[in-house]
Design a protein around this nucleic acid. Structure first.
Lengths: 344, 344
DNA sequence: GATTGATACTAAAACGATTTAGCAAAACCC
DNA sequence: GGGTTTTGCTAAATCGTTTTAGTATCAATC
């Protein structure tokens, strides 16, 4: 029980504590004491010490030692915020895994994992600054605070940033302004005169840009300003509350652009509760970041990132960086794709 | 360009290739050649060799060496299949992270990540059998093939299995049969006479059990069999297709139990397309594994795992295993929670 | 009483990278 | 031309674990 909270307990410390060699301890830990004929009494003493001292294996050391010399382990990570929808992330992961598998010859072995940080606090993520956790990462769903941090730090391994522009990294993102513009055109094209844009209070770079381009296009084509409805957060509940308040205040609204599909889903509820029909009374356009946009009722028309293209770009660049075939950062812009469904 | 595809390239190999010491190579790799005054010509030669030989750093070695001796890195993983909905996984991860953070004293540092496997092919996951990747894992969303593999292998680190019973592991799961029974009671209680259960073709242990208990309860209370509608997979599209076929074949149906919410979402579409009303014509019960069940139209009544309780159990057991406070596997059953919404 | 065979352990090398301390040669200074 | 400084590099230790080869002790055998 006397947990020594000073330094991590090592095999050596246990060995010393018991009065045997490190080899003996390791043997017991691996459960090979029978085949190596350790005395039962010794085994028990070691087991007790392992428990009492609170031993936790050092996986880095184990890995280094255990490594098959023919196989190269390559660690890829997808870094995303807790707050973001994981659906897109899992698509990225799937694709990264697929493309990595395709490059997995004999002697190459990729493992891909997702690691999460609290939005705005990427800098606090353990081991981020050291090159000792990942061979390469994709970073996404950052907030401005995270972007600012990244802009001032160049991480010492392969990094591709998804959905942001940062001069010191390879970035892959939606062509700026296109999404917002196309969304506006769709709504105006249906004859909407009083379009509204629904955004969260904390804007990421992409959401800010979408809203801005949308408003600019509306202004250019109609001469009047689009109303901005601000939700407290990213969730459907936030979206529903914000739009309910807007509608019940009697404001005119015949078209809605939601900068994330989560907000659109909440908006649907508010619109239906207000007795309005989609798209007859209010047409809705989303961005396609929700797995089930096609099963919204009515199905959600989306203007947003063309995910296959984006993910392909990301992975290509990640591997180029890791192979040092690319050294200078580049910015890749992918035009948004439009999926017309029943909501607009 | 001459990539030697024999063994992984090490710093030493580069050093030999160039005719310098490993230290020089390491210095260049870390970008510290200026402060350590390496000749520019040497730096360039090393850089070229690094590129040509296709060097990829060994993160395990870096980690071991770079480790702050005061800090103990603990690696936790959540292992889930690509095919499963990530929403629940991210909840688990969030909670694990929170509880881990709470135990993160000085000198303890947890990193939690998600790793994915192809459903049914868990056994092929790289590094799964070695204790050199994770200190502890939560395994979930397994198929029977995965369960069979796990039942015959005892992984050499802390493992908690979520949603399955396996005698050799700590398991946390819904009380068997309860979900299906409660779902049936809700539908029968509303006066449904011809309830239907919608399942995917490939059943996991939990989905199989839900369907089975549902049918048993219906049989016990009405004397007749509940119809089973089998969808090709887990997606809403699969669910919609399967139920559409069932309804258009003219079969009677006044209540539906979908064993995953994805299927329920598809079912909604099929029901509405057939001109039936939820819940008036057909009442629907789901399981609450979808993030936005509350924003379905109408909101989905759910009977399913009580996630907070489950996750709390998981994490407690995982830490007990890691601390060796528990050595024998236990099975923890958590009763399902019921959330009545408008769909039933 | 030397030989063999278990039994119960240990010493040392190895995994791949980084860093510290230090060495040799060249350049500079008076 | 002796001393000092700068330049450009290397040797060796280290991180924590596992494994291989080997050693010491004791009992049984011939």
């Amino acid at each position: 029980m006397a947990r020594s909270d000073q330094r991590p307990v090592t095999v050596h410390m246990i060995a010393e504590h018991v009065g045997v060699s490190a080899s003996a301890v390791s043997t017991v830990l691996a459960g090979r004491h029978e085949e190596r004929r350790l005395a039962l009494a010794t085994v028990e003493k070691i087991r007790k010490a392992v428990r009492d001292l609170g031993y936790v294996p050092n996986v880095a050391a184990r890995r280094l030692r255990a490594q098959d010399p023919e196989v190269h382990h390559i660690e890829l990570g997808i870094l995303t915020s807790f707050e973001a929808p994981l659906f897109l992330v899992s698509r990225v992961l799937r694709q990264v895994q697929r493309m990595a598998d395709a490059r997995t010859g004999p002697g190459r072995n990729f493992s891909v994992s997702i690691a999460m940080f609290h939005a705005g606090r990427l800098r606090e993520m353990a081991g981020l600054r050291e090159a000792s956790r990942f061979n390469g990462v994709v970073i996404t769903n950052t907030l401005p605070a995270d972007d600012a941090f990244l802009a001032t730090t160049t991480l010492p391994y392969a990094v591709v940033v998804l959905g942001r522009r940062l001069p010191n990294y390879c970035c892959v993102l939606d062509t700026p302004g296109e999404s917002g513009r196309r969304a506006a055109e769709i709504l105006l094209g249906r004859g909407c005169r009083r379009p509204v844009v629904l955004t969260p209070a904390l804007l990421t770079e992409s959401t800010a840009e979408r809203a801005q381009a949308f408003c600019a296009t509306v202004r250019a084509q109609t001469g009047s300003e689009a109303a901005r409805v601000v939700a407290a957060g990213f969730t459907p509940t936030n979206g529903a509350e914000a739009l309910r308040a807007h509608l019940s205040a009697g404001r005119i609204c015949d078209g809605l652009y939601a900068v994330t599909d989560g907000l659109a889903l909440g908006a649907y509820q508010a619109i239906k509760d207000a007795g309005r029909k989609i798209p007859k009374d209010i047409a809705v356009v989303g961005v396609g970041d929700h797995e089930h946009a096609d099963f919204f009722d009515p199905p959600l028309t989306c203007v947003g990132p063309s995910n296959e293209t984006i993910v392909e770009q990301i992975v290509t660049q990640l591997f180029d960086l890791m192979n040092r075939r690319r050294v200078k950062p580049v910015e890749t812009l992918v035009p948004p794709s439009v999926v017309m469904r029943a909501s607009a």
